[in-house]
Design a binder for these strands. Structure first.
Length: 286
DNA sequence: CACTTGACCTGTCCGC
DNA sequence: TGCGGACAGGTCAAGT
């Protein structure tokens, strides 16, 4: 589900809500755990742990505590929903104004805080994970993911360099690959390629310097715009309050196949590239 | 190495 | 209304 802007939205909200709070207990919900570390150890260590801060790295959300880093990946359908103690109960369960109720059949884990707040981890498809890591283990994990597209290292020189050895594949496949550049997913790759007027199935070796420059500029522009709109809700995504993001109304191509291009009016196409549904304008993108 | 494909899960939607 | 198939915002392992 969530790509960089969605995880960023959740992380910054949770940081504001939970920084300085102390975990009283963590409970597993449902039959199968999402905890890939040892549960007894995780449960023991979390008791009484104080949240130092919460941040995003790539598409991972990290809860930093003195007891270690709780690293969470939401994959396709993971949600983190925070219920403060002030939310009214309806029939014993907190009901958010958005209609999201927790716990529900997809709730897998809950962090309970001393102030009375609860943080639920829901995951319909169960691809997501939660792992307790030491600083060293997290550093090791980070070695597997690329730089941040919104960070100072994402320069044109870096971008050219990362495309260097990938001439034989499609530009979409390279942008989806998290190893050099982390955080883009299916929505924002399609949007960035539309913005820079490049067809997603173009071989990297065929890109002109002007196209590479446009693409490098489009990526942070689109991500920042989406963060400002609190992400895209296409189906499952909600922020920590159960609210939808509003970048959906700014999407130019993603999910708009069969509709007219907002730029030229041509009917948008959907094809399969890099194993993913891929949306583009056959006229604007070459 | 570079690159592609299928698997992991559950739910929804679309055509018959 | 039911049923089958395709597809869904992400990553891995395993294959060529």
């Amino acid at each position: 589900m969530p790509e960089l802007p969605e995880v960023e939205t959740i992380a910054s909200d949770l940081n504001a809500a939970l920084r300085g709070q102390t975990i009283s207990v963590v409970r597993r919900l449902g039959v199968r755990s999402v905890i890939t570390s040892s549960w007894p150890a995780f449960s023991r260590v979390m008791r009484g742990a104080k949240v130092r801060r919460i941040f995003r790295r790539a598409k991972m959300l990290v809860i930093e505590t003195p007891a270690g880093l709780v690293v969470i990946h939401l994959k396709m359908t993971g949600q983190l929903i925070y219920i403060s103690k002030n939310i009214k109960l309806a029939g014993g369960h907190p009901i958010l104004s958005t209609g999201v109720d927790v716990p529900n059949k997809h709730s897998r884990l809950v962090f309970e805080f001393k102030g009375g707040g609860r943080l639920y981890f829901n995951d319909l498809r169960k691809f997501g994970w939660v792992r307790l890591m030491s600083a060293e283990q997290f550093a090791e994990t980070e070695r597997g993911v690329g730089i941040e597209p919104l960070g100072p290292d994402f320069s044109l020189a870096f971008f050219k360099n990362m495309l260097q050895s990938r001439g034989g594949t499609t530009i979409k496949a390279v942008l989806l690959d998290q190893k050099k550049l982390a955080g883009l997913g299916n929505i924002y790759v399609d949007e960035a390629l539309f913005d820079s007027r490049i067809k997603p199935d173009r071989r990297v070796a065929t890109l002109t310097p002007a196209e590479i420059k446009r693409l490098q500029a489009a990526i942070p522009k689109i991500l920042r715009h989406s963060i400002a709109q609190r992400g895209t809700t296409f189906r499952n995504f909600t922020d920590a309050d159960g609210l939808k993001g509003s970048y959906m109304s700014f999407l130019k191509v993603y999910g708009r196949q069969g509709k007219p291009c907002r730029r030229c009016g041509t009917i948008l196409h959907k094809i399969r590239v890099a194993g993913r549904g891929t949306h583009f304008c056959p006229r604007c993108q070459v």
